[in-house]
Structures are given as structure tokens and as C-alpha cells.
Amino acid sequence: MNNWVIETKGLSKLYRGRYAVSNLNLKIKKGDIYGFLGPNGAGKTTTIRMLLGLIKPSKGSVHIFGQPLEKERLSILRKVGSLVEYPSYYGHLSAIDNLEAIRRIIDAPSAKIDEVLNIVGLSKDARRPVKGFSLGMKQRLGIASALLGNPELLILDEPTNGLDPSGIQEIRELIKQMPKQHGITVLLSSHLLSEIELTAGTVGIIRHGELVFQDTIERLHRQAHEQGTLSLVVSEPEQAVAVLQEQGLGVSLMNNVILLKHIPDAAIAQAVKRLVERNHAVYRIEEKRQSLEQLFLQIVGEGGRP
């Protein structure tokens, strides 16, 4: 028994001779919000379907709460709430009856229905047939359904799809509270970094079915920082480039601005000192940080397959 809530080993799914998900080793720790990021079609939903036992992996294994999913599916799912891709609903029933249909199956207490409707802010529309709901309201209903069984693990696939900005904000705050208030572990998938950035503690980035990054959000920030550049504006830039190259720094010149790759503080200080010693006037030193979004795009974009 280890403390991973979800652990997959070599998880793969073959569709028509092509790996939709390939050799995925996810590790999600208890009480964390895990942001599962990737562009559309990268394999996020396929992965989530495998985690819920909706489809069978071609290769590899899934352990949830330390138990093998294949053997313990029912006892695992009893502690999981989920929302997969677009929300599921019965259009001819009201929101209350939709939840009641689920409640009867999982045998949750009746009072829970009001509680979850309240949490997602649907209480006043609860008696209307769901077919008249907007996508955002259906999405909230989906989240309410996921919360109905008092889950220990919440798997939400693109939960803010179709919500307006204030709805996105609300749901984000709601998700943030889950680990703190209820000790719930959350797996949250999205194709937008901005949505994950503010909520997740750990990020997994999937591209063409492969996990290309899995670490804390801080580590991602640091990586973005390290991939930033410095720009120098000096008098006589050509000669200055030569001076910097003497020191073994990788530099390039663009529109009379010297561009430097990210280097440690000491190295910058050294470089500036040299330039000043050679009577160059240093007008401006600017750090151009790479935004997280750019880094994300770079991670998911590089080495793209056709």
C-alpha cells in the first residue's frame, strides 16, 4: 500500500493500430488537485475512461486507492465521483429527479440532493426539466451528480466547458475547496493551462497519448523562468557581442538588441562587469520571461507527429 490515490503503470490504449494513450505512468497523491493537461485529442478523455473502467486498457494497469481497478472496480467506484466529457443527463426529468435517479443507485441519503444542488448553485432551477438547461447549467448538474456519493476522489473531465467566465470562476473556487474542506483528491482535465494553473498542485501534460511532463506547478513555473531570455541594449552592440562570446555565452543580435539565454545571476553580473570594463555603455537589461502558456504550447507543440 502506497499513498498514491491513482497510479497507472504503462497504461496504453490501442485504437485501430494507433496508440491513443501510450505508456502512461500517472501518479496522483492524496489530497492533491492534479491538473491533467493536453490539447484536444491528446488522450485525456481516453485515459479518464480507462480510470473509470468504461474502457479496458490494451496494456498496463490502473491502481486506485492502492487497489487494482480490474478486480475491485465496484468498491473503487463507490468512492469516486466523476464527470466525463460533456455532462450526462435525462432531459425529460428535472434536476432533482436526475439526481434522484443516481441517488437511488448509489444509496446516498436524500438530504444530499439539496446539499449538492446548493453547492453548484442550481437550487432555484431544480424543478425544471433539464432539457431546457444551458450547457453551463448541465455542467453544474454533472458536478452535482459527481458530488452526490461523498466521493474521496473526484474525476472531472473539462468541467468548465461551456461555462461563462463567472461560472468558471465559481467552479474553480469550488474545486479548490475540495481537498481543504473535504479531503477530496481531484483529477481535473483541461486543454487550457489557465484553468489548471490557478487550481492544481501537480500538473501532468499529455501529448499524442504520451505523458511529457509530470511535476508540481512550481516546477513548471521554474522551467518557464529558466527558458526566459535576457535582452541587453548597449552602445556598440557588434563589439559587445564579441566581448560576450569571448566569455563563452550564447548570444545573438537582433535589431541592435543583444539576446542572451537564461543564465545564473552571477554570470550576468560577470558579463555586465566585462562590458563596463571595455567602456561599453549598458543602457538597459531586461528579462523576458516565458509565460507558462508559451511553455505549455512549446511542450505540447514540439516533436509533433503528423
Partner: peptide, 18 residues
């Protein structure tokens, strides 16, 4: 029909039911 229509199958089968 109502399972096919609103994505009910995936929701039902993600619940602890055989």
C-alpha cells in the same frame, strides 16, 4: 434511448454498478 441521448451510459457505468 434516454441513456444514448444524454450520455447516460457513461454516467451509469461510472457508478458502482455491475
Amino acid at each position: 434511448r434516454y441513456e444514448h441521448g444524454g450520455g447516460g451510459w457513461k454516467m451509469l457505468l461510472s457508478l458502482p454498478v455491475s
